[in-house]
Amino acid sequence: MSLAPFIAQLRPSAASLRALGLLVLLLALLLVSSGAFSGQQLLDNARQAAPLGIIVLAQALILMMGRLDLSVGATAGLANVVLATSFAGDMANIGTALALTLIFGLAVGLANGLLVVVLRIPAFLATLAMSLIIAGGLLVFTGGSPRGSIPASFRVVTEGWIAGVLPWSVVVWALVAGLLSVLVHFTMTGRRMLLSGANMRAARLNGIASDRMVILAFMLSSLLATLGGILLSAITGMATIGIADSYTVDSIAAAVIGGALFSGGVFLPLGAALGALILFILQSLLYVLSLPPAAKFIMQGAIIVVALALANLKKER
């Protein structure tokens, strides 16, 4: 019995390895400049990067479908407000709170999927409109000052470490990345999604229910964005309007660092995870260097331009 086909599915792509190289380089620079950078610190960075990391996975999944989800930030923000409001600071509400938050997330994804598939609206515009509707809805619902808070015992999700070695949030993040890898690389549904993402028309003509695959991808994306929002809430402990807005462009930047392409048909969970970690470390570096917050946006844009330019140059060679 040969395991080769299974191992081949898991072999990291060249793009993921490049991202890994970039991360090592970045860590080496940090080590040289600050003199000390421990594995502990890296894990702590990963702990805080987990919400972003999961949202990047959402974006990477939609990029695999050859589309763009500009509502992931708003969806994560929605999760934050819904979670805090329904928790109302009491751990006893955990069941309702989580269920309600996930239902809202799935509803957003379903709506995105239907707008794209049934009404044939280009995904980036449908999700842009969706993020506007969510933002407006939150303002109307909360009157601009959301109430509620996350109970301390739930905040363990991002604040806590298993046996003091491994942060919970990193475990969640790795678990989600692993499940998505299994979905895309080991299941029929995932293969159908991949084929639909690489060429929607051809997939449909070969009998694949591509429309359903797109809706499924958008629902998964919003679900993951919601999960990211939940982890983020566990860090902040309260509801804040627009808390996750910058995650939308962040997620695109991190995904392209990790080798995602806008042409679809590529899914690199390892690359996405590394991209998120790199982006997070770069952003905290800006903070350490006490650069103004404005620098963060310039970096976002510059990363997208440089990463895509490099990918295109490589393609042409």
């Binding site: 763009l68 806008f262 946006f297 976002q300 844009g301 510059a302 997208i304 331009v305 330019a309």
Partner: peptide
Amino acid sequence: LRINPLVMSLATAAI
């Protein structure tokens, strides 16, 4: 750089 126009304009927006 042959970057997709939509994405490029998004990057410009961030910068």
